[in-house]
Design a protein around this nucleic acid. Structure first.
Lengths: 183, 183
DNA sequence: ATTCAGTGAGACATTCGTGTCTCATATGGG
DNA sequence: CCCATATGAGACACGAATGTCTCACTGAAT
């Protein structure tokens, strides 16, 4: 089979999301390639995880771009962001729970850049009077990550229907569980 | 040093939350005991993680009991639950991200029981008209776990002040980020 | 048909974590 | 004060995963 880097990384992400301790051999099998081939393209397990980090950062950044957060109301922008980020949910879920491992410079640079963008988005929303000011942008950012990660996990294990992913996350993040007069 | 099972489990949870791949030796060092002693009390790594699972389940169950969820409004009950669960935040954070590894029966029994209680709480709240009915109890349950876990993590790495833990989680879970007329 | 780059399978040595053991030491009770 | 229990440190073998290598084979381009 011809080597398809993108495909290999996808299946690796899917597998590692389920079992973060999966063997290099298992990762290779899951991708339908031999262990030797896997090693030819990723010098080691670290390199593989690093590549997954970069892929996740790149996809999240692309989602941020695609969502054009400074257009329309903050609520609309958030809905666009969650929609854009959904396909990367599994990968992000893996990275959020695994990012504890690395302290590489470029990786942290990448996350810091993303954090800054998301955080700035929430701050803008607060300044515009669309978001509550008693919840810090840093916390809202973390909560966004957490909910996306939790949502992707819940969908993967079948606790939540895949078609509800966006709605559940956005609605909870925006409106919370309380039943208010507007609902 | 005299062996303190509780203390060892606590430090193990704290360490494993940061790095889930930490060595048995590192776990022992972190607890200030020798590796041999650790092995004397926990026959192996599996047994250690299993003990952490049981401790977490036990603490969460105690928190559920302490919160007397069927007393007062659902909102008050939720605030009590989050307050009661805060001390176990780090441990739960570890278990939530790590429970993917095990498929043991008793462990799953424990989680299923907890899931059922939390889920039933949200369903009751919906029936009483206090919680939105367009978010499923299963999702609210997962979101609760996710936010508690994310919150504990955010506090641990210093992104959120420890004293804000309860407020941030409860407010986001109940009211969301949107600024509404009642705020 | 030939060549050649890339692949899969397997063998191999190495590293690392684990689990067990021994022994000297310390702590605590009788 | 003495004894018993438990601990810490270290040595050891074992197993698993890793990383490297070789070799035969495939498939595609020339």
């Amino acid at each position: 089979m011809t080597f398809d880097r993108e495909r290999v990384l996808r299946s690796a992400a899917a597998l590692l999301t389920r079992r973060s301790t999966a063997t290099m051999d298992e990762v290779a099998r899951a991708a339908g390639i031999g262990r030797a081939t896997l090693h030819r393209h990723f010098s080691g397990r670290d390199a593989l995880v690093r590549a997954l980090e970069n892929l996740g950062i790149q996809e999240f950044e692309a989602a941020l771009d695609a969502a054009v957060l400074d257009e329309g109301t903050s609520e609309e922008a958030l809905r666009r962001l969650i929609a854009a980020v959904e396909p990367s949910g599994g990968l992000l879920s893996f990275l959020v729970t695994e990012n504890q491992l690395f302290e590489g410079e470029e990786v942290n640079d990448g996350w810091n850049r993303l954090d800054a963008r998301v955080s700035a988005f929430f701050r803008r929303g607060q300044e515009r009077g669309e978001f509550r000011i008693d919840l810090t942008p840093a916390w809202l950012t973390e909560a966004l990550y957490g909910l996306v990660s939790t949502g992707a996990w819940a969908v993967q294990v079948g606790r939540v229907a895949g078609q509800d992913f966006q709605y559940m996350i956005v609605e909870l993040l925006l409106g919370g569980a309380r039943r208010s007069v507007e609902q």
